[in-house]
Amino acid sequence: MKKLHNLIAFIGLLSVLLLAGCGKSIASQDVLQHAKQTNTIVWGVKADTRLFGLMNTKSGKIEGFDIDMAKAITKQILGPKGKAELVQVTSDTRVPMIKGGNIDAIIATMTITPDRQKVLNFTQSYFAAGQSLLVKKGSRIHSVKDLKKGDKVIGVQGSTSVDNIQKAAPQATVLQLSDYAQAFTALKSGQGVAVTTDNGILYGMSEQDPNYVVVGGTFTKEPYGIALNKGQTNMTNAMNKAINALRKNGTYEKLINKWFGDIPGFDIKEVE
């Protein structure tokens, strides 16, 4: 008899979960309309990535190129009084969060890929990155070709760099950590021989600790786009228009120069 009760309870629980799955999701509302009503766009941004989105512990604010772009685009769409609300994401959490409706848009060093385009809308590319390797100064590794069997390469969960490195150096083992701060920490702890991700992010790490250098140039093309939930055509169009306007009025170039102008070894002409 007790067993029967358990069974009933289990079925009950499952059906609650299933019903929950079919409920009306916030993610399916028109985010442009919603943003105009609340005068706010909720952006998912990185807080652990120097140059793009990094927490300033003094002010408690996140700073970086992605952040400035998010604010500029918000003002472009909602007018000068429009608010950009910043929610921290990692490569690991950003897709579940936009699918769940925690955020309206992702501007977080996110590469436009065909796989992601199946489930997300992307704007035009706003930054042309490429994947590279970060190693300790004096490492025997000078490019992807030097990665041997047994070498551990550190990547970040949910980023394209993990798939790319598995293709470019199938003999190496990939360790996937939650965010870039942990990935860089793991490299310094000797958990792997290299961190692999996009050059812009790696230059940020090397700027923080010059004992680590970016080697071997880029071996992929990683165009960054702003991601929205599938079907959010109105907001996607509005953002594309906003990016065009920022390129035309010089804001875009000013921001690129502000963040990447003095990075040694970084060619700003390549990324625009």
Partner: peptide, 27 residues
Amino acid sequence: AFVAGFDLMYQGKIIANATFNTFDTYL
């Protein structure tokens, strides 16, 4: 899962990211 230890949770996170189907993966 925090330290890339290949356990169930770690695999779950990777699958959730690859399939974009968070809900069912964690279920």
